[in-house]
Amino acid sequence: MTRRNTATIVFVSLCVVLVAAAITLNVGWIYANGRRVLPLVLGVLAFALIIAGIIVYTVFLVRELHRNDQQDAFLNAVTHELKTPIASIRLYLQTLQSREVSEAQRADFYRVMLADADRLQQTVELVLKAGAAGQRLALHQRQPVDMVALAAEVLDVARLRHHLAPEAMTLGTPDGDGAWTEGDAEDLRSVLSNLLDNAVKYSRDEVRVALVVDVPSADLVRVRVTDQGVGIPQSQLKRIFRRFHRFQWRGSKVKGTGLGLYIARSIVKRHGGRVFAASEGEGRGSTFTIELPRLGHA
């Protein structure tokens, strides 16, 4: 048991004791002043306020302890995400410096180091975007964005990043050329990329991910990412969009910072849309849906 868990138990137990003591005093006050109306009413109100204050204070204290636990987990995750590629790059550079290697090995070392550098850049950008999301900045630069073209681009990059066959990740598009929205293409690209990466990470033995863009109504563009992975319990469907919150399926240890979905929701909200998750339960896959105003109908 961690020190914070122990502290939580202590504070909750203290709250229970204080409430019990307040109730005991309240009953005694009522018994002592049963025939005097004004002192009786004032005493009951005072004790009720005291009990309410104790409960509210304890709730906020426990929530703050829980938030600190989440921040510690986030710092540990970010530290790991930074240290691992740095150590890898350092090792390969030391190898190149200390001994001769073949051209094939040298090219392979460069490839791995570039991949580690990309991982570092993604982690830093994630933290920076989390800071911007927390400030709730308005979206000032708006440009037409073709969600079909953007989805196809992000899907190709995800296939290459995760070394997947074409049939592992499929794209469904609407008829015609009307899936346009208005906003920041780079931000929307990061949202789709995050959802696809999560779909792959939380898939099990075989990756099967479907990315579908459609236009369900004249004023709406919808993007759905569906996987056949571990699924999400009903109790977690809203919590997963909170900052630092991470859902771990039983027996799994998926790496991450707990910021991706929080940033995705913030970006989509800045674009005047919404994002939500649906799942039939653990082990039955999940679907993440983005809804954005269609260009010309916002």
Score class of each variant (00 low, 15 high):
Ala77Cys: 05
Thr79Pro: 08
Lys83Val: 07
Thr84Asp: 13
Thr84Gly: 06
Pro85Tyr: 01
Pro85Gln: 05
Ile86Pro: 01
Ser88Ala: 10
Tyr92Leu: 15
Tyr92Thr: 13
Tyr92Trp: 10
Leu93Asn: 11
Thr95Tyr: 01
Leu96Lys: 02
Leu96Glu: 03
Gln97Asp: 04
Gln97Leu: 10
Arg99Phe: 02
Val101Thr: 14
Val101Gln: 13
Ser102Leu: 04
Glu103Trp: 11
Gln105Leu: 07
Gln105Asp: 09
Arg106His: 14
Arg106Gln: 15
Ala107Gly: 08
Phe109Tyr: 15
Tyr110His: 12
Tyr110Met: 10
Arg111Asp: 11
Ala115Ile: 12
Ala115Lys: 13
Asp116Cys: 11
Ala117Ser: 11
Asp118Lys: 15
Gln121Gly: 13
Gln121Met: 03
Gln121Tyr: 05
Gln122Ala: 15
Gln122Cys: 00
Gln122Gly: 08
Thr123His: 05
Val124Ser: 09
Glu125Lys: 02
Leu126Arg: 13
Leu128Gln: 13
Lys129Glu: 13
Lys129Arg: 14
Ala130Trp: 08
Gly131Glu: 07
Gly134His: 13
Gln135Met: 14
Arg136Tyr: 09
Arg136Gln: 13
Arg136His: 11
Leu137Asp: 01
Leu137Pro: 00
Ala138Ser: 15
Leu139Arg: 12
Leu139Gln: 14
Leu139Ser: 08
His140Ile: 03
Gln141Gly: 09
Arg142Pro: 01
Gln143Gly: 03
Gln143Asp: 06
Gln143Leu: 12
Gln143Ser: 09
Asp146Cys: 08
Val148Cys: 07
Ala151Lys: 01
Glu153Pro: 03
Glu153Gln: 15
Glu153Asp: 14
Val154Ile: 10
Leu155Val: 10
Leu155Asp: 07
Leu155Tyr: 04
Leu155Cys: 11
Val157Met: 08
Val157Thr: 12
Ala158Pro: 08
Ala158Ile: 10
Ala158Asp: 11
Ala158Leu: 10
Arg161Met: 03
Arg161Val: 02
His163Asp: 11
Leu164Ile: 06
Glu167Trp: 03
Met169Thr: 00
Thr170Asn: 00
Leu171Gly: 04
Leu171Pro: 03
Leu171Trp: 06
Gly172Lys: 07
Gly172Val: 11
Gly172His: 05
Gly172Ile: 02
Thr173Arg: 07
Pro174Ala: 04
Pro174Thr: 00
Asp175Gln: 05
Asp175Lys: 14
Gly176Arg: 05
Asp177Trp: 06
Ala179Met: 00
Gly183Asn: 03
Asp184Gln: 04
Asp184Tyr: 00
Ser190Val: 00
Leu196Val: 12
Asp197Pro: 06
Asn198Pro: 00
Asn198Ile: 08
Lys201Val: 00
Tyr202Ser: 07
Ser203Trp: 11
Ser203His: 09
Arg204Thr: 11
Arg204Tyr: 11
Val207Asp: 00
Arg208Asn: 15
Arg208Tyr: 05
Val209Asp: 01
